[in-house]
C-alpha cells in the first residue's frame, strides 16, 4: 500500500512537470496558433541556470529563481524575435514548427559547447530525506512540485479571468481582429504569451532538477511528452493540461513499475494517438466549426 501511494505521488509530480511545460504550449497556441517546438530546451536552460547559480555559486534560492525568471524573459524575447515573428509573417503554415525546432537545436548545442555535455546532480533545497505523511514516506521535492505547478496554472488562469489585460489575452485568442478594434495590441499580447510561457518552462526546469539530473539533454524527452499532455488536455484548455499531465505521469509511473521501465513512454503516446483520433480537440478542447 505504501509503495502504491509513493508511486502515485511520484507519478503525479512527474505529470505536473509535464503539465507546466504543456501549459507553455497552451498559452502561446491560444494567442498565436503556434508554440515553441523546443520548449523542453527552455526547461533545460532553467535547470542549468539554476544549477550554476544555486549549486555551483551558492546564490540564495530566491535570488536564483529571479535569475532564472530573467533568463526566461530574455530567451523568450529572442525566440519571439528570431523565430516566431518571422514565421507568423511568412506564408508557410509550418514555418514556426521548423523555426522553433532550429532555435532549440541551437540552444542545446550552445549549452553543450560552452557549458558541459555531462549531467549533474541538483540537490533539493528541501533535502532528500522522505518526510512522513500519515505514516507514508514522501519526497518533499515531489510535494513541492505538485504544489508549485498547480499554483502556477491557477495563478495564470485567474490572471486571464480577472484582470483586464488577462481578458485581453482571451480576447486575442478568440478573435484577434475584433480584439484590435478594442484597442488591444495583439502583437504585444502574443509576445507576452511567449515570455510567460518561456518563464514557466525555465521555472519548471528548476523544479524538476532535483528529481532528474541537470544536463543539456534533460529537456528533449520532457518536451516531447508535454506535447502529448497538451494535446490530450486540449491545446486550448488551461486546466486541461493538469488532467493531461496526470494521465501521462501516472500511466508512466505504473507502467514502469508493473510492466517494464523500457515501456514507460508507450502508454502515453498510445493515449495521445487515440485521443487525437477520437477527440481531435482534446478532452477539454472546444469544437471548432470550419466554414468554407
Amino acid at each position: 500500500m505504501e509503495q502504491f501511494i509513493q508511486l502515485l505521488i511520484s507519478g503525479i509530480a512527474q505529470g505536473m512537470i509535464y503539465s507546466l511545460v504543456a501549459f507553455g504550449y497552451n498559452i502561446t497556441f491560444s494567442t498565436s496558433r503556434s508554440f515553441n517546438f523546443s520548449h523542453g530546451n527552455f526547461l533545460m536552460l532553467g535547470g542549468v541556470v539554476g544549477l550554476i547559480f544555486f549549486i555551483n555559486n551558492q546564490v540564495p534560492f530566491l535570488a536564483m529563481v529571479l535569475a532564472v525568471v530573467f533568463v526566461g524573459l530574455i530567451m523568450g524575447l529572442i525566440l519571439y524575435k528570431t523565430s516566431i515573428e518571422p514565421s507568423l509573417k511568412s506564408k508557410s503554415n509550418y514555418a514556426w514548427i521548423l523555426a522553433t525546432l532550429a532555435f532549440g537545436i541551437i540552444l542545446k548545442n550552445i549549452v553543450e559547447v560552452f557549458w558541459s555535455t555531462d549531467d549533474f546532480r541538483f540537490d533539493s533545497p528541501l533535502g532528500n530525506a522522505p518526510i512522513r505523511i500519515m505514516g507514508i514516506g514522501v519526497l518533499p521535492q515531489e510535494i513541492l512540485i505538485i504544489i508549485v505547478a498547480i499554483c502556477i496554472v491557477v495563478a495564470v488562469e485567474s490572471f486571464k479571468k480577472y484582470t483586464i489585460f488577462g481578458k485581453a489575452i482571451v480576447a486575442v485568442s478568440e478573435d484577434k481582429h475584433t480584439a484590435s478594434l478594442m484597442g488591444i495590441n495583439q502583437q504585444f499580447v502574443i509576445l507576452f504569451s511567449f515570455l510567460l510561457s518561456s518563464v514557466i518552462a525555465c521555472l519548471a526546469g528548476v523544479l524538476v532538477a532535483p528529481i532528474t539530473m541537470v544536463g543539456a539533454t534533460m529537456g528533449t524527452v520532457l518536451g516531447v511528452k508535454a506535447y502529448a499532455v497538451s494535446i490530450i488536455g486540449g491545446l486550448e484548455s488551461g486546466y486541461g493540461v493538469l488532467l493531461g499531465g496526470l494521465i501521462i505521469g501516472l500511466s508512466e509511473a505504473f507502467t514502469a513499475r508493473y510492466i517494464s521501465t523500457g515501456y514507460k513512454d508507450a502508454p502515453g503516446f498510445l493515449i495521445l494517438i487515440l485521443v487525437l483520433l477520437f477527440l481531435p480537440s482534446g478532452i477539454f478542447g472546444k469544437k471548432i466549426f470550419k466554414k468554407v
Binding site: F29, S34, F35, F37, N93, Y94, I97, V224, Y227, A228, I231, L235, S260, G262, Y263, D265, A266, F269, L270, L272, I273, L276, L277, P280
Partner: peptide, 24 residues
C-alpha cells in the same frame, strides 16, 4: 484527420513508439 502541429506531434509519438519497441 489531423494537420499542422497535431500531426507533427503524432509523427513524433509514432517514431518514439517504434524506437521503444526496438529497444525492448
Amino acid at each position: 484527420r489531423l494537420s499542422g502541429p497535431y500531426l507533427a506531434v503524432v509523427t513524433i509519438a509514432y517514431g518514439l513508439l517504434i524506437y521503444t519497441i526496438i529497444n525492448e
